[in-house]
Amino acid sequence: MIRIENISKSFDRLEVLKRISLQIPRGQATGIVGPNGSGKTTLIKMILGLVKPDEGTIQVADKELNGHFEYRHLIGYMPQIARYPENMKVRELIDFIKEVRNDEAVFEQELIEEFELTRELNKPLRNLSGGYRQKVGACIAMMFDPLILILDEPTAGLDPQSSQRFKRRLEHEKDKGKTILLTSHIMSEIEELTDHLVFLLEGKIRYDGSMNDLMQDTREPHLEAAVARMMEENL
């Protein structure tokens, strides 16, 4: 679904990604993990076209990204920090994104109810707590029923109940055959939700393969221990 070939990226003199190649498989959930500054967010932003690679190519649905924007109809994106124009109401923001995208918002009502946003719809976004803003972000990312979901630390800021609901929803989307790309610092969450794992370390891919294989290879009971072990081996 997403094919990345020999991507490099530097910011000033700092090399963030070093000749990375990988494929995000169609219809599966892929988790990207790695310590802070390992290049996770940069990688996601490159797929979205927010950051342009210094070299290498990226293909989404067999089309190379080359300054195009139409392919983003296929993608729902939930950013790490959800900040919106302060005076805009939730309802207006949702309508705005609908108009800008010009896609049908298939799950709009369903998601508003599921994330308990009904009572917040007429509130300005500045009055919303971080968790609710995050839910608005989730709603915007998922309501157009996109083929690909890209979620950057989606559950940070959500209370346990909302987090659970969000994860159930994600599983549901996965069952429908969506391609999901997820970053998180919570290893148990990655373990719970994803089938495929990409472990980035200092701008390089340290592991790229199925979650099961990793657990078997490292003989660790949990992903956290397996990742910690890979980091130690790298030292």
């Binding site: 392919y71 900040r83 995208r101």
Partner: peptide, 16 residues
């Protein structure tokens, strides 16, 4: 001020 909002919009199918 609107940095994150610009990022959110850039992630939508619209041209820069």
């Amino acid at each position: 001020q609107s940095r994150e909002f610009v990022e959110l919009l850039l992630a939508q199918p619209i041209s820069r």
